[in-house]
Design a protein around this nucleic acid. Structure first.
Lengths: 106, 106
DNA sequence: TTTATATGTAACTATTTGGTTACAAATATA
DNA sequence: TATATTTGTAACCAAATAGTTACATATAAA
């Protein structure tokens, strides 16, 4: 599967998005992640496998635990795609221009 | 399925992303779309169904043809999600700040 | 060394996806 | 009216997803 495909489909699940947000704050081991969800630990493992395949997260083994962390760089595979939509970027640019003018004084 | 889910999974397919880019330029009927791909017209119909369900695309009937067009607004369901990642927005903001300073004079 | 903990994987089920071909229905045209 | 065009849908298949429970494995702790 293409990089962009795997990133978008990794993001197409509520639980996986929640995992990403959690890991963007701090690395966590599997049990710590699983505690935050109602689904079983093996289900979390499967989600982690999908996230790993998309390279949005990676693991480091520490003793019997495995710490997962977020790889922000991989998000660009998805974010970059949106650039096709020039008008979007124009709008964002205008919005940010206003924001900067307001917060910094023009 | 949640809005965000359906948008991300709609985007998780190369052919559907290509359709979106095409429709962002101009509305097209099904045959015109299908001509640009190697897969069968019914396969295109299925993709259009998924895109419609995500509301990224909508159709207007004109005689026996159906013209599909892109709904940019729906993209925000996906784009907004990325805001969780503050550092990303900070980077973009800095990049845009530089860009604006360069093009407009600070 | 035995036991407890952390994690992965296997096997299973139901649903969705991405493709196919065949056919139906609606509209335009000869 | 008969025919051609445009599109949708049904029926099928193979693969992937999202979950489950049961079991295996590796490491830590008693």
């Amino acid at each position: 599967m293409s990089n962009t495909n795997s990133v978008f489909s990794a993001l197409a699940d509520e639980n996986r998005r929640k995992i990403i947000v959690m890991l963007s704050r701090e690395s966590m081991n599997v049990n710590a992640i699983a505690e935050k969800f109602r689904i079983s630990r093996p289900a979390i493992s499967k989600h982690l496998r999908i996230l790993e395949n998309s390279k949005l997260v990676s693991q480091v083994k520490e003793g019997r635990e495995r710490y997962y962390s977020f790889n922000p760089k991989q998000m660009n595979a998805a974010i970059d795609w949106f650039k096709f939509y020039d008008m979007f970027w124009d709008n964002k640019l205008n919005a940010l221009k206003k924001f900067i003018e307001k917060t910094q004084g023009s």
